[in-house]
Simulated scan of single mutants.
Amino acid sequence: MIDSIPPVVPAGRMRELAQPELALSGGMLLRPWTPYDAPTLVAAHADPDIRHWNRPSRLDLAGAEARIARWHERWQAEKAGTWAIAPEGGGAVGLVGLADIDLAGGSGEILYWLLPAGRGTGITVKAADRLARWAFDDLGLHRVRITHSVANPASCAVATKAGFPLEGTMRGALLHADGWHDEHLHARLRTDATP
């Protein structure tokens, strides 16, 4: 009989780490969401593009504050980490997160969205790359993936530029308001070269 395989990242590792601020170039950073960001979250959940590609439910201010509180609880439960993309000292212009975390298996999935004010700046590429480097170097994951609808070429470009090669297409993988979408699967390994 073979001994069981030890976990890639031991349980408790993420909870032991304070959710960090991660610097990006150009005076931008990734930081934990705060209750002061609730109005931005309400606006994001009303944005047609964010609603189409990310399928969020509509939120009021109280719902946004509760969602932010749940994100902090999910960090402590080692299930997910959610960061605001923001200028230093400023309000959030987007979100990047590490979800579906499997510490024992050493994997997770990056997700992101950006409000219109931040679009076209390349900041999402920097955010996805920076979060992947944190997931590998500080948390200790082995594999991080990004999935998106094949009908969303902007998200495909973000994933590719952030160093996540396209691995394939998952057929009928996600239900959107306009029907089932095939999804691209991109992934990056800890051993891959940094883009």
Rank of each mutant, 00 (worst) to 15 (best):
V150Y: 06
L114Y: 00
P153F: 03
P116L: 04
G91K: 07
R143K: 13
F164N: 02
G94W: 01
A128N: 08
G106W: 00
F164V: 01
Q76L: 11
A69G: 13
I123W: 07
H148C: 15
W134P: 14
A77Q: 14
W113L: 08
G91I: 00
R133W: 10
G122F: 08
S149N: 09
L103N: 02
F136S: 02
W75M: 02
R145I: 01
V93F: 11
R171N: 04
L141S: 03
R70H: 09
D100N: 11
A62G: 10
T124A: 14
G118T: 03
K126N: 11
D102A: 11
G89E: 05
W83K: 02
A69V: 05
A135N: 06
E78W: 09
A86H: 04
L115M: 15
E78A: 08
I146Q: 02
A128C: 14
S107M: 07
I68E: 03
V150H: 05
E109H: 14
G81F: 00
S107N: 14
F136D: 00
F164M: 09
A99V: 08
C156L: 05
D138P: 09
K126P: 03
Q76S: 12
H148G: 09
R119E: 11
G122D: 04
G122S: 04
A132F: 02
T160F: 05
T169F: 06
S107Q: 07
D137G: 15
R143L: 10
W134C: 03
L139T: 03
G106T: 00
D138L: 07
A69K: 14
M170V: 09
P165Y: 09
L95S: 11
A80Q: 13
G63Q: 09
C156S: 15
A104F: 02
R119N: 04
D100V: 03
R70I: 02
K126F: 01
K126H: 12
H148P: 12
A135F: 06
V144H: 01
L114A: 12
R171P: 08
G168Q: 08
V144S: 06
A86N: 08
G163A: 09
R74Q: 14
G91P: 13
W113C: 06
E65T: 03
M170T: 00
A84S: 12
I110V: 12
G81C: 14
V96M: 07
D137Q: 14
A117N: 10
T160R: 15
L103C: 10
G140S: 05
G63S: 10
L111H: 15
A104S: 12
G94Q: 02
A77E: 10
E78F: 06
N152T: 06
E109N: 15
A99H: 15
I110Y: 03
W134V: 00
A92H: 03
V158S: 07
D138T: 13
T82W: 08
A62P: 10
K161Q: 12
G118R: 06
E73Q: 15
L131E: 04
G140Y: 01
D129P: 01
A80K: 05
I85K: 05
A135E: 01
L98G: 05
V144M: 07
E78L: 10
A86M: 07
E109A: 14
L61Q: 12
I85G: 05
